[in-house]
Simulated assay, not measured.
Amino acid sequence: MVKQFKAKKLTIFLSLLLISTFVSCSKIDKETILSPNVTEDIKVEENEVKVTLEKGNSYLNDNDFANAKLTYEKATSIDKVNKDIYLQIKDKYLELTRFDDALYFVQLALNNNTDIDNMKIISDNIKSKFEITSIDKSLYEGESYTLPSELSTKINNENVSIPVTWNNSVINTSTAGTFSYLGTNKEYSRQFNATLTVVPPIVSAVVPPVVPPVVPPVVAPVIPSVVDEEHCYVKNIYKSNGKTYIDVDLVEFLRGNAALEGAIKDNNSKVGTNDDGSKFVPDSYYIRDNVHTQITYEVSQNSTFNLAEFHIYPNSSSNGTITVPVPYDRFESYIKSHINGDYRPNLCLIKFKNNVVYDVSYVYTP
C-alpha cells in the first residue's frame, strides 16, 4: 500500500515537472511540441499576405484603384489583427494623397479591434488633411434662404457632390448680423462651413410733397446693387435643390507690366531674361494663385455662359479671344470634361451681383 502511494506521488511530481518544462519553453519549442506543422502554417500565411499585398501594390501603381482596394481587403482578411498590414496599406495610399482610401483601412483596423489607440490617432491625423469647403452668402432681413443639401468636395482627388447635414437647417433672417453654420458628412468624414451675413433692407427715402411748378418731381432713389467681377479657375458647376452652384478658386489675371512685376515678386519660374538682361514673362500675362481656396457661389437662373468660338465651331479661325453664348448644359459639359486629366485649369471671368453670379465667360490664354 505504501509503495502504491509513493508511486502515485512520483507520477504526480513527474507530470508537474513536464508541465513546468512546457511552460518555460520558447515560442519555437512550443510550436514544435504542439504541432510540427505550426511553423510551416505560419510561414504559408505570412507568404500569402506578402503576395497579396504586392498584388495590391501593382494594381495601385497602375491606377486600378477598384482592384487595389479589393486585393488589400483580401490581405487584411487573412490576418485581421496584424496591425502592420493596415499600416502598410495606409502608407501606400498616403503616398498618392488618396486620403479617403487610407482612412478606410484605418477604420477597418478599428472595426477589427486592432491597435485601437494608435489607429484612432492616425484616423484623426488623416481627417485633419481633408479640405473644409466654405460658402458665404449675403441676405436681406426677412429674405428666405435654404442651405444646400449637397456640396462639392474632393474625394480621393476628385470633385464629388456629397450630401450635407447642417447643425441648424432653419435659417432665421429676422435679425441683422453674421451667422455661422457647420455642416458634416459622416460617410466621408467631411466638414463644411456656411457664413450668412444678414443686412437691413435699404428703404427708399420718403420725399415730402412739393408745390409745383417751383420744384420738379422727385424720383425715389433706386436700391443699389453690389456688382463685381473676378478671374478664377472653375472647379465644378452643378445643380442642387433646384439651384445652380459654381465652385471656383479666385486668382489674379495680370497683364503687361503688372504681369512681370507680379511674377518677379512671386519669384515665379515663368520669368525669363532677354539678351540685354531685361526680364519678361511669356505672352505678357501671369496668373497669380498663391492662395488655393475653393469658394462656392450661387448662380442666377438667368445667368449667361460663354465659351470660345472654337469650342463650338471647330473650323473657326478665331484665336480664342472671341466668345459666344452657350446653354447651361453645354457649358456644364465642357467644364466637367476638363476638370481632370491633362487639361489646363478652366480660367474664366465671373460677374456677380449681390454675391450671385450672373455671367461666366471663358478666358483664353496662349
Rank of each mutant, 00 (worst) to 15 (best):
K30V: 05
V215R: 06
D62M: 10
E95Q: 14
L254M: 12
E261G: 11
D289I: 04
S144D: 09
D29A: 12
L34C: 10
V222F: 01
I162L: 10
N57M: 15
I171R: 04
A308P: 05
L260K: 07
T184I: 10
S134H: 12
L60I: 13
L53F: 13
N47W: 06
V51G: 04
T293D: 08
S144N: 13
S149I: 03
S128N: 12
S58P: 05
K6S: 04
D228V: 09
E131Q: 13
G56A: 15
N125C: 02
D62S: 15
A75V: 07
N156W: 09
V363S: 01
K120C: 01
G341M: 06
N125G: 10
I42G: 00
S303T: 07
Y285F: 15
S300N: 10
Y93H: 11
V251E: 01
K83D: 00
D136I: 04
S138Q: 09
V160A: 10
P282C: 05
V199S: 14
Y233A: 04
L108I: 05
N302A: 10
T273V: 15
S149A: 08
Y188T: 08
Y343I: 06
E230H: 11
A220V: 07
N111R: 11
K351Y: 08
N185L: 02
S134Y: 05
I264S: 10
I312C: 06
Y140C: 05
Y364P: 08
N355D: 13
N354D: 15
Q4H: 13
N159S: 07
L151T: 02
D247Y: 01
L87R: 11
N354E: 08
F305P: 10
R98F: 15
I264F: 03
V164Q: 00
I12E: 07
P314Y: 00
I126H: 05
D62P: 04
D247W: 01
E143A: 14
P163L: 05
D275A: 15
N159C: 03
L34S: 08
D62V: 06
P208L: 00
P327H: 01
K129V: 02
K83F: 10
L60A: 08
S225H: 09
A259G: 08
